[in-house]
Design a protein around this nucleic acid. Structure first.
Length: 569
DNA sequence: CGGCTGTACTG
DNA sequence: CAGTAC
DNA sequence: GCCG
DNA sequence: CGATG
DNA sequence: CATCG
């Protein structure tokens, strides 16, 4: 036992307000009976070490319930380090500012943190899984990984166990008999509340967000955020997709398929799985291996195995041949036609674009979308994007040289071609009203007169309008391009840059992260203290944290800065 | 079983 | 408001 | 479809 | 008819 | 667009 004996086994967990204003409250830490405290005398350090992340929080709670102490700092009493998935050994060392960890027990390979290579001749203690521990592990889904790794060696010179908490969800059975804190009648509630509050106060790292009083930067409070795609660097232009290249291609086709049929959630899941698989350094060939990857569940795991074994997927072949699907897909590529309209058209018996043109009732925008179906569905080469942007820029500067035009979207991310042309227009010091007036009343009419702007698809009508969507056409060209003008006051420039640079996954990830931190991110700014209606989820606006500076928004969310080219998830 | 980003414009 | 787009 |  | 959702 | 005052 380390000199400093275990903190009173109740290194309790600070309370966390649950989302959605629902009635849930504080989780009660309920120690298991003494003879079952398999972690008794062990001191855990988590990496990251805050309980703001729900999953990790569960693991921490379970660890404590089974007798461990939760160390808020890495010190020499720590016996085990539990590392989140997606962090590797190198990152851990870097964070701890260490060159190596003292006395690592390398015996339990199964849960070794990735990136850790044991010394060649490691005299280690074989660690058979204690029956007791394995039994517990059956009960503790979240903690399980760690449970098994228990080392018997708990001396003052305790060896460190490096445990990866990554291993994804277990293949199956909902753990029986998991003590559910919320089902247990609450005794001693006041006492616990107090303990929890105190624990929170004694765990500076646990209270995330912005209460940094002074001194050192809160740089090191990286935590549960690693779940969010926006925390991971990815350029997308690594020609080779690694050992799972072929699988990725097929999965991408499936993702595209679900995108086409507007099944946004399945599409999202496939993209998530693809992103996760792309990061794998070894080939994933079996369902079991796939299931261990965070972001891949049983359904996709099965498909991965099928893909590896048979080279492709029956389901996909089938989907490709479904005629109705083809029709819907065709219709939905028309600007102004979504799933609903496409289904109506299809149900009316229309099969081709020409059918629609001749027989269907179309909105103005849909007609334009059909007239320029091919134009709008073809990519715009980077050089052409620049030409369109140049024309707008020149015209605008002619009206007022103080205007600034930024080309956004995939162009800003460095793409060689884009789906459309996104131009962000701002003028330092000018109000949004002034900008809107200039653009709507002068720029657009001017460029329309010059036959550069050739269609207006959606223009701001409301008093606070900020956008113009339409089509543009270069002189000597007959190809119409989708072009969007985005009007932004200087104070919102950072948030607008962030939003209109994307990509969409990156944006969603950033916004979700903000939301989990009680904040709200939109194209105008990052807001804090957002109030969510009790019971439901209405919201009060919240107060502005940052809108002008793109980098400061990253900082406020504790996301490492990433240039536009690295925002491809 | 419910959440999964958050907003602006059209009709 | 639903649908659509970003 | 995945996750908590 | 304009406002509203 | 549908609905409302």
């Amino acid at each position: 036992m380390p000199p400093s004996s275990a903190p009173p086994a109740s290194s309790a967990i600070p309370m966390i307000k649950n989302k959605k204003g629902k009635g849930k409250q504080v989780v009660e830490i309920k120690l298991v009976p003494e003879d079952q405290r398999i972690f008794q005398g062990l001191h855990f350090y988590f990496f990251p070490n805050s309980d703001t992340h729900p999953g990790r929080r569960q693991r921490i709670i379970k660890a404590i319930e089974y007798g461990a102490s939760w160390q808020d700092k890495f010190n020499d009493t720590v016996t085990h380090i539990i590392v989140d998935r997606d962090y590797d050994f190198e990152q851990l060392l870097k964070y701890l500012k260490l060159k190596e960890l003292p006395l690592v027990d390398t015996s339990t390979i199964e849960f070794r943190v990735k990136g850790y290579e044991p010394p060649a001749s490691s005299a280690t203690i074989a660690q058979p899984i204690p029956s007791q521990a394995s039994e517990v592990s059956l009960q503790l889904k979240p903690v399980k990984r760690k449970a098994v790794v228990l080392s018997s060696q708990v001396t003052s010179e305790a060896s460190l166990n490096l445990v990866s908490s990554s291993a994804a969800s277990l293949s199956n059975s909902p753990a029986p008999g998991v003590p559910d804190p919320q089902q247990v009648p609450n005794k001693d509630e006041d006492e616990l509340d107090t303990a929890i509050r105190q624990a929170k106060e004694s765990h500076p790292l646990a209270s995330d967000d912005e209460d940094d009083v002074e001194g050192h930067k809160r740089r090191k409070t990286n935590n549960w955020q690693d779940k969010f795609q926006c925390m991971h660097k990815h350029t997308g232009k690594s020609g080779d997709q690694g050992p799972n290249a072929h699988t990725l291609v097929v999965l991408q086709e499936l993702a595209d398929h679900y995108d086409q049929i507007r099944d946004q959630w399945r599409c999202k899941s496939y993209r998530q799985a693809i992103s996760a698989l792309r990061k794998q350094t070894i080939k994933i060939s079996t369902k079991e291996a796939a299931m261990r990857v965070y972001g891949i569940g049983s359904s996709i795991a099965e498909k991965i195995e099928e893909i590896v074994r048979t080279t492709h997927l029956r389901k996909l072949d089938f989907a490709k041949l479904d005629e109705r699907q083809q029709i819907l897909n065709r219709f939905m590529k028309i600007y102004g036609v979504g799933l609903h309209a496409a289904e109506n058209f299809a149900s009316a018996g229309y099969k081709t674009i020409d059918d629609l043109l001749q027989k269907a009732e179309l909105t103005d925008n849909q007609r334009i979308g059909i007239d320029h179906y091919d134009d709008f569905n073809s990519r715009v080469p980077r050089a052409e994007v620049e030409k369109h942007a140049g024309i707008v820029k020149k015209a605008l500067k002619g009206l007022d040289k103080n205007y600034i035009v930024n080309t956004m979207g995939s162009y800003r991310r460095g793409a060689q071609d884009s789906g459309d042309i996104d131009l962000l227009i701002t003028k330092p010091g000018a109000s949004i009203d002034e900008i809107r007036t200039t653009v709507m009343d002068r720029l657009v009419p001017l460029l329309t007169k010059h036959k550069f702007l050739v269609a207006a698809l959606a223009q701001t009508s409301q008093a606070d309008g900020t956008k113009w969507h339409g089509a543009s056409c270069l002189p000597d060209s007959s190809t119409w391009r989708r072009i969007d003008l985005l009007l932004v006051p200087e104070e919102e420039l950072g948030a607008a840059l962030l939003y209109f640079t994307g990509n969409d996954i990156f944006n969603r990830s950033m916004r979700l992260l903000a939301s989990k931190k009680g904040m709200r991110l939109n194209q105008r700014g990052l807001y804090k203290d957002v109030l969510r209606d009790y019971g439901r989820e209405k919201l009060s606006e919240g107060t502005l944290v940052e809108g002008k500076d793109e980098r400061k928004i990253f900082e406020a969310l504790d996301v490492p800065w990433r240039p536009p080219e690295h925002r491809i998830c």
